[in-house]
Structure formats: C-alpha cells, structure tokens
Design a protein around this nucleic acid. Sequence first.
DNA 1: CGGTAATGGATATAAATATATCCATTACTC
DNA 2: GAGTAATGGATATATTTATATCCATTACCG
Lengths: 223, 223
Amino acid sequence: MRVFNFSAVRRLPLYHSVLRDYQRSGLQQISTQMLAKKANMATPVVKKDIEMTGATGKTGVGYDIVGLIGKIETFLGWDNPNDAFLVGAGRLGSALMAYEGFSRTGLNIVAAFDIDPSRIGSKVRDINILPLDKMVSLAKRMHVATGILTVPENQAQQVADLLVTAEIKRIWNFSPCVLQLPPDITLQREDLCAGLSELMLRAGVQEKQNPKPLFSVESPVVS
Amino acid sequence: MRVFNFSAVRRLPLYHSVLRDYQRSGLQQISTQMLAKKANMATPVVKKDIEMTGATGKTGVGYDIVGLIGKIETFLGWDNPNDAFLVGAGRLGSALMAYEGFSRTGLNIVAAFDIDPSRIGSKVRDINILPLDKMVSLAKRMHVATGILTVPENQAQQVADLLVTAEIKRIWNFSPCVLQLPPDITLQREDLCAGLSELMLRAGVQEKQNPKPLFSVESPVVS
DNA sequence: CGGTAATGGATATAAATATATCCATTACTC
DNA sequence: GAGTAATGGATATATTTATATCCATTACCG
C-alpha cells in the first residue's frame, strides 16, 4: 500500500542540486550517465528515480534539464507552498529560520514561538518570534498544518501536544526524543546523531575496504 | 560486501532515546514489545536491530536497559571519541557547536573556522572560532579526521577541497550541494530539504489513507 | 543517405530489508 | 510445584529496493 520509494525520494534533492549546477553552466540537456556520475550513483538507480517523477527523456539525447528540475519539484511538492510554525527559537531554530535552502521547497515559516522573554519580540530574517501562548489560537486561525519542533528534549512532548491541540497535522521534530502522538499526525524525526553515526560506520567500512598499510586496524568482525 | 544494515543503524538512536527515558523512570528491564510500541516500530524489526548490536536478552524478561544502551553505544561507536573541525561558523554551524546531543556520540568539535573577521576570535560553548587559514596545518598537527561543513553552497566545494588537503577523511556536509571528492573520503550529506520532502509526501499518503471529508485534495497521481 | 554510437525505457535478476511464524526457556500465579 | 503466559532467539517468508540486461529509437558523422 506504500506508494513511494522513500529512499528514492531522499535522493531527488541530490539530483536537483546537480541539475541546478548544470543549469547554471548553461547546459540544456543531460544524460542519465552524467547525472549518475556527478551524483555518485549507479545509472539504473538514477533512471528508476527519474521515472518515478514522471519525467521522460529523449532517446539518444537525455533529459531536458529545466523540464527535469520541474518534474522533481512537482513530485516533491516543492511548488505548492506550505506554511509552517516553528517552536523553539534557540540556536537551531534560528538557523532553520535563516536557512535559505527552504525557499526552494515551498516551506514558508510564517512565525516562530518561544517562552524565553529575551527572544520574544525579536525576529530572524523577517520571521517574528512570538510568545508560545499565542501559538494555538494563531495556528487555528491561519490553518497552519506544519510544525517545526526545535525545543530542548525535556519540553518536546509537551510542545508537541500543544501543536496537536493547534490542529497541526505534520510535525518535524529536531529533538532527540521519541514523541507519542495521535495516529493522524505525521511525524518526521530529524536525528542529527543518526546521520553522524552513519558517517562514522560507513567510514569504518570504507577504511576496511581500502586498508592503509600503516595504521591498519585488525577487525575480526567477519560473518 | 556491505556489512551493516544502514536503515537499522538509523533506528538505533531512536531506541537509545526510548531506553534513556525508561532508564530515567527507574525501570531495569524492557521487553521488545514495549520498546517497539514506544518507538512506533514493528516487533520483529526491533528484534533484528537489537540482534545486530550483539545484545542478548533474557527469555521471559527482556533486555537489561543499561546493558542494551551500552551495546547500542558501542555498536554505533559512541564510546570512542572523535575529534572534529567545523568550517563555517554561521547560524547552522553555531547551532551544531552548541548542540548538546553530540556529547553522547563521542563527537568532539575541537575548533571551528571561518573567514568572516567578525566571527573569528569569538567562541561558542568553549569552541574557538579561528581563521580558516590555520585549518590545514592545525588539522594535520592534531590528526583530526572528521570535518563538518556548514558553509554557504557556493563555497562548499572549495572548502571541501581544503579539508582533503588537511588530510581529513570524513566529511559531514550540510550544504545543499554535491561535492566531488577522492574515493577514500567518506562523505555524508545531511539534506534538510530531503527530510522535509519526506515529511510532506508521507503526510500526503497518510491523508489519503485516512481521508478527511472536507478539504480533500484531488490527486491524479496514480500508478 | 547509410552506418555507428549513445540514449531512454522496459524488463529481468539479485540483494537487501521488513515481516511473520515457531519454539524452547523463563517467570509468574495460584 | 504445576500450569500458564510471556519472552528472546532462530528460522522462514514476503516485500521492497538495487542492479543488470536488452532493445528500439535517435542523433551524429562521414
């Protein structure tokens, strides 16, 4: 019943990035092979991923770059805007507010909320930081459906419950904790530690495959 | 030849988080079922994931929480420290420098680098921000093997090359761009837009499964 | 205009990953 | 102490995802 290949979905922004590079350099069309090489991917994977977006190429030529970019953006939903509230205007929250990459994706952080009086009233890149008290009523009034959670771990569940009260349907959680939410809420956990651990483990594997003569680590871990 | 199940690896921090919760509440042991429920996972997945870490449980009882936490940490390499340099002490970079969650993972950001004179000389949470010029020699001298890249998109490749010069082996890239690097460098791309897109697409699927009568979105995207 | 090389698209295969089933062992209840 | 319910661990199956192969079509070159 799952419709998408989410591994593929996570690769699309990568292709998008490569395509933008080529577009800037004035290129009109691109082959799967070129795209795969730049993205460090196998050709068949790239083909399948592109097929998923509905884009079609021209045999013997490749894909129209602008067209493919468009197809990817449409597929990812980047061309319909999404209003979002952000809760927790600390360092990470402020960084997300200021992050320029989101403009491409249709994400529009319309307001931020905090309980810290020293933050309330200030703004980051035109986004006002408001008292958390105002969040629920404002979300309901504006029909905001997306919430970004960048509060400390020990407050995350409490604030998440508040977001549910505010009738928010999608929660993007940056706190390293596990939230308990009603089943109709879509939760995306963004775990920085997971990415870091993956890097370290992949590096370990890679070092084993291309072992350096000096400094080699004995590894008895074989199946 | 791949040794790890990286989908599973990305789930381990989730379990770790649940386990810490239970540990704080004074619980000594936990069953797969409880863990799976809290983590919103299927029981067999949790079992397999735990098996991967080498932890063993007690039939009829479950796993020793402290022991399981330890096994996960060992497996993920959280118990051997990793010195890292961070380049790009902007908002995102500063947020990472201040991020407390990394302390668990063994990541130790020993210094940050930037070219902006207004940032150089200041510090974030005991981490000094130094001029980028000093990076290469310092990295070589200190044998730092991990680099965190939080510079603007248009400078990312250039700085990445610098990190390679500095004999750094692992690069954690937060810029939404595609880096070209030698094959012996392990690159981890942390793409915030990918996570966001996944959230939006999953939400779409979920809404289709539990459709709300009012406000339904017509979607002609069928296989 | 003919031949050659490259491409997208379809199809087939392999591998990885998720899910289900079973069973001996253990704790718990009465 | 016997019976029952629950657990981890092993095994088997299904599904998803990745990889390889093939072929008709197109551009390019002479």
